[in-house]
């Protein structure tokens, strides 16, 4: 790839060979189902500059900038324990421990907001759009699994 990513004053720029650098935003094409896979780099006006199948195809320095930027832009805390779940009316109430600390949230529609990415990997979405990830359902402790099975 004949471009490089640069970081100046906290902002990311893209520069193609001998061209002027442009402000860029780095996005996952599939933030829920395909993280660390396809990447889209867009300009200030949200127009795609380049689409990458993987970050591996770009030089190390640019790759690191892209990785840091993706980590900054996306917030998907991993659930490590489920303390309690409750059904009330058609809502599911969750009290969980994430890698970022404890959290209580409400899920409105489990059919839509409990996304099984694979047999083991699950994404949960609360009623206001915050997302949480269960990296491996199998690796959760017994009481967490029971709490999930109680309501889902």
């Amino acid at each position: 790839m004949n471009f490089r990513l640069l970081k100046k004053h906290g902002k990311v720029y893209i520069q193609f060979e001998k061209q002027q650098e442009k402000l860029a935003k780095i996005l996952w094409a599939r933030p829920l189902t395909g993280r660390w896979k396809e990447i889209s780099i867009v300009d200030e006006k949200k127009k795609e500059i380049i689409f990458l199948d993987s970050l591996n195809s770009i030089p190390t320095e640019s790759r690191q900038i892209a990785k840091d930027e993706l980590i900054r832009n996306y917030f998907l805390p991993k659930i490590i324990k489920v303390f309690e779940t409750k059904s009330h009316r058609s809502c599911r109430y969750w009290h969980v421990e994430t890698e970022k600390g404890p959290r209580k949230f409400l899920m409105k529609n489990p059919n839509r907001d409990f996304l099984c990415i694979s047999q083991d990997n699950i994404i949960l979405r609360d009623h206001i759009g915050n997302c949480y990830e269960i990296v491996s359902f199998r690796k959760l402790d017994r009481s967490s699994k029971n709490a999930i099975n109680k309501i889902i």
Partner: peptide, 25 residues
């Protein structure tokens, strides 16, 4: 606006300072 969260940024004449992050709540 970021994915599932946001950042309040102070714009100064020199740079932009991220002040505080917050979830959708």
């Amino acid at each position: 606006e970021l994915f599932a969260h946001s950042c309040l940024v102070a714009v100064t004449n020199e740079k932009e300072i991220p002040l505080v992050y917050y979830s959708r709540a």
